[in-house]
C-alpha cells in the first residue's frame, strides 16, 4: 500500500516541478528578436553571395579573369570572361556573373582566387518574385558600389 502511494506522490510532485520550471520562465523576458524591427548583427565572416573587391588604388576590380573560380565552383554558377586591354599588364573581366539560384554558398571561389578579388557580400534578406533577380552581374554591382562610395582614386 505504501509504495503505490509514494509512487503516486512522486509522480504528482514531478508534475508540480515541471510547472514551477515553466512558471519561472514565464516571468523572464522574451529571448526573441522582433525581426523586421530589429536585426541581429551580421558576423564578419557571413557568407552571402559573392561580390567583387575593389582595388583601393584604382577603384577597379582586382580580378584578373583567370577563371579559377569558374573551375572551382561545384555548381558551375560563375561565368567569367576577360580580355587584356591595351597597356594593361593583366587581364581584366568583361563579364562576371553569378547564377545565385544554383549557388550553394560554399565559398570555394573566394578561397581559390589568387588575387583576393572576391569576397562574400553581407546581403541576407534576399527575396524576389522572379528568377532573373538572382542572375547577378557582379561588375555592375561593383560599379554601383563605386558610385555610392568613392575611393580616394576616383575622388582624385
Amino acid at each position: 500500500m505504501k509504495t503505490p502511494l509514494r509512487e503516486l506522490w512522486t509522480g504528482f510532485r514531478s508534475l508540480l516541478t515541471g510547472m514551477r520550471v515553466t512558471l519561472t520562465q514565464f516571468f523572464k523576458p522574451p529571448v526573441t528578436v522582433p525581426y523586421p524591427y530589429a536585426t541581429l548583427p551580421i558576423p564578419e565572416r557571413y557568407r552571402g553571395h559573392i561580390e567583387l573587391v575593389r582595388d583601393p588604388e584604382t577603384g577597379m576590380s582586382l580580378c584578373v579573369a583567370c577563371k579559377s573560380c569558374e573551375k572551382a565552383c561545384p555548381s558551375g554558377c560563375i561565368v567569367v570572361e576577360g580580355i587584356k586591354r591595351e597597356g594593361d599588364k593583366k587581364k581584366s573581366p568583361t563579364v562576371f556573373t553569378v547564377d545565385f539560384t544554383r549557388c550553394s554558398l560554399c565559398g570555394s571561389c573566394v578561397e581559390v582566387c589568387p588575387t583576393e578579388a572576391l569576397r562574400f557580400s553581407r546581403r541576407y534578406n534576399l527575396a524576389g518574385t522572379d528568377r532573373e533577380a538572382y542572375f547577378l552581374d557582379l561588375l555592375k554591382r561593383l560599379q554601383a558600389q563605386a558610385a555610392s562610395t568613392p575611393t580616394p582614386a576616383t575622388k582624385a
Binding site: 558576423p43 564578419e44 565572416r45 557571413y46 557568407r47 550553394s104 554558398l105 560554399c106 565559398g107 578561397e111 562574400f120
Partner: peptide
C-alpha cells in the same frame, strides 16, 4: 551564433578543408 561567427553559415557550415 558561435559557429556562424567562425564559419559564416548557420547550418551548412562547409568548414573543414
Amino acid at each position: 551564433d558561435l559557429l556562424e561567427r567562425i564559419t559564416g553559415a548557420r547550418l551548412t557550415y562547409c568548414y573543414y578543408r
